[in-house]
Amino acid sequence: MSAAAGTPRPSGSAGRARAWAELLRLPALFTVPGDALAGAAATAAAPNSRTLLAIGSSLCLYEAGMALNDWADRAEDAAERPHRPLPSGRVHPAAAFTTACLLTGAGLALAARAGRPALAVAAPLAATVWAYDLALKHTPAGPVAMATARGLDLLLGAAATTGLPGRALGPAALLGTHTLAVTAVSRRETTGGAPLAPLAALAATGVLTRLVTGRPSRPPAGRREAATRGLPGTTSAPDGVVSRPRAAFDFTPAHPPAEAIATALRPTLAAAYLATAARPYLHATLNPSPPLTQRAVAGGIRATIPLQAALTARSGAGLTALLVAALAPLGRRFARTVSVT
């Protein structure tokens, strides 16, 4: 819950800003950039300007989904969560719906700027977001749709960076599995009483932790060269081999210092993911009350960042993994004032 009922709220412009921050779940935004960065790392390429466009597209589509979610649930929220921005009257429903439309358009436009492969992923991602909020959320297909959206978001980073989203299917599947587990738990966020979902999420977290500590098979040399050819800071030698300027550190996954950092980080990041998600899942399993279920959902959302960082390190991009991991404390800081659920 974003705030207790009856808690005094700021008035005027500060109150409107707070209402929109709650509607858009702003602290949850810190869980988004890691998708594109993990997708880029899975292709053995360094992040580039197109990766930044993919991140911008992801942020817009994510926030579009948040606004559309509350617009679609406004009648339900009026009964169960009257403190939320729409039922409390702090944000008009028409404004929320218009915002969702504008953000969706902006997300698709940014993906188009990143290239046709990125747009080819962003279009079904946007369609999945809208289908989930308007039709699938309260059906058995809801958690699968949410998992699909998160997986597509990771593929968007790969498609924008290199035009080769297929190379990121493995990390996308792992991230989607985590999202599936969190979404399944969230379906009882207001009612509680279902220990099976958090127990299944706890088991999934253990399996994912084991998988992300391993190292995927390295792409053949030709694939690594193709992934980095034409990227900023790379040149092609006469014999066709990609060469890079000598530097102590490089964000490209195949660069030895980045690989060494990634190898050292993988166990730590996997442990951080396990610690963030497992404890609240266990508490919700033992006592599936609404407050503990809500904490389990929040813990699962926060755990997305260390999982993204672990997946990035698993692909050999140590410095990018550090960048992703640094988003976690920022998200926790902002979550103290605005709830992520």
Rank of each mutant, 00 (worst) to 15 (best):
A4R: 14
P8Q: 14
R9Y: 09
R9G: 09
P10L: 14
P10D: 14
S11R: 15
S11V: 09
S11D: 12
G12W: 10
G12H: 12
G12S: 07
S13P: 15
A14R: 15
A17T: 09
A19R: 03
A19I: 02
W20L: 11
E22D: 11
R25G: 00
L29D: 09
P33N: 12
G34C: 00
D35M: 02
L37R: 06
A40K: 05
A41Q: 07
A44N: 11
A45C: 13
N48A: 15
R50S: 14
I55A: 09
G56K: 08
G56T: 01
E63N: 15
G65V: 00
G65E: 04
A72L: 07
E76G: 10
A79Y: 08
A79F: 12
E80I: 09
R81C: 09
P82C: 04
R84Q: 05
R84V: 00
P85D: 06
L86W: 01
P87E: 00
P93G: 03
A95L: 14
T99G: 09
A100N: 09
C101K: 09
T104N: 06
A106M: 03
A106S: 07
G107Q: 02
A111G: 06
A111I: 02
A112G: 12
G115Y: 13
P117E: 08
P117H: 06
L119G: 08
A120D: 13
A127N: 07
W130K: 00
A131I: 05
A131L: 15
L136T: 08
K137E: 03
P140S: 10
P140I: 06
P140A: 11
A145P: 10
A145E: 03
A145K: 11
R150I: 07
G151L: 05
A159D: 06
A160Q: 03
T161E: 10
P165F: 08
P165R: 07
G166V: 06
A172T: 11
L180K: 12
A181C: 12
V182S: 06
S186C: 11
E189S: 01
T191S: 13
G192A: 08
A200K: 07
L202P: 04
L208V: 00
V212S: 04
V212I: 07
T213N: 05
R218V: 07
G222E: 13
A226K: 09
A226I: 02
A227L: 06
R229V: 00
L231E: 13
P232T: 04
P232N: 10
P238Y: 07
P238W: 08
G240E: 06
V241C: 13
R244P: 05
F249C: 13
T252D: 13
T252C: 10
T252P: 01
P253G: 05
A254T: 12
P257Y: 10
P257S: 10
P257I: 04
E259G: 14
L265S: 08
L265C: 12
T268E: 11
L269T: 01
A272Q: 14
Y273I: 01
A278T: 05
A278D: 04
Y281N: 14
L286V: 11
S289F: 11
P291M: 10
L292S: 13
L292Y: 08
A296D: 04
V297T: 09
A298W: 01
I305S: 01
L307V: 00
S315P: 03
G318S: 12
V324G: 04
A326I: 06
A328W: 11
P329S: 02
L330R: 12
G331K: 01
R336D: 03
R336F: 01
R336N: 02
T337S: 13
T337E: 11
T337H: 15
S339C: 10
